[in-house]
Write a protein that binds this DNA or RNA. Sequence first.
DNA 1: TTCTTGACTTGGACTCCGTCCATCGTAGGA
DNA 2: TCCTACGATGGACGGAGTCCAAGTCAAGAA
Lengths: 136, 136
Amino acid sequence: MSDLLERLRERGWRMTSQRRVVAEVLDGDHVHLTADEVHALAARRLPEISRATVYNALGELVALGEVAEVSTDGRARRYDPNAHHPHHHLVCSGCGTIRDVHPAAEPLDDLPAEERFGFTVSTAEVTYRGLCPSCA
Amino acid sequence: MSDLLERLRERGWRMTSQRRVVAEVLDGDHVHLTADEVHALAARRLPEISRATVYNALGELVALGEVAEVSTDGRARRYDPNAHHPHHHLVCSGCGTIRDVHPAAEPLDDLPAEERFGFTVSTAEVTYRGLCPSCA
DNA sequence: TTCTTGACTTGGACTCCGTCCATCGTAGGA
DNA sequence: TCCTACGATGGACGGAGTCCAAGTCAAGAA
Ligand SMILES: [Mn+2]
Ligand SMILES: [Mn+2]
Ligand SMILES: [Zn+2]
Ligand SMILES: [Zn+2]
């Protein structure tokens, strides 16, 4: 994750203690935190960090392409630091657990020209749903 | 759509003027209205219908499997009367237009066993994004 | 090191979407 | 026609996210 901090600095991202803890909280695999969860974790290191600052930092990380926004449930958006490895998501309908998954085929290729209605289609996001081992 | 009203009556759905206009508003293809849009359209026929009633009716139609809930952006949920024909969605990143689409392959089949992490996977929803002809 | 300044942070107000609840009204069976 | 359980109402409430004016500070300049 110091890779991330390094890249951000090189790209001219002004480094503040708030932005640093937000970036640090987003480290790891299968991390899909909501903004409020990021805020709660960040506040353990920096108690007075505000919600607005967390939203600002997350929005900028998304704009920079360093973090992906995921909305699997119509509720709060989730923030995914695994933005450099394209993937899709498998969500447990019971407990909400989210796993990164990699389908065998590229989903975009499965949409025939006659089903594109003249659109320039650029991305496909797949959400798989089911029950995880503990919930089954 | 009188099919829908008929089915609902047979299934014991108590018919009220409010529920009737909600069901009628949801008629057509490529219809993906938000609850507030349904409310606005319903209010043209039945001016005093309340938001709570629209939410109740939509929730019940979803529970009955007659309407599907779709959330393509992190914003308001949309309600899709085309629930008896499984399909996916193509969304214009410019204007938000939504089209129903049918991929050539079943997306569920593209998820290998070793990418299922022991889950019992039951559904896959695909959201394709791109620009519609007018926005391109 | 200190100065300077534009960028960042803050907290609160605000909006939007959705839920909840006590009360009132009515669909539909007796 | 009458009864009553189920549905409708609207206002309060909660969660998620945005916006803003005022205060603070990172980092380059000197
Ligand atoms: Mn992910
Ligand atoms: Mn649809
Ligand atoms: Zn689970
Ligand atoms: Zn468009």
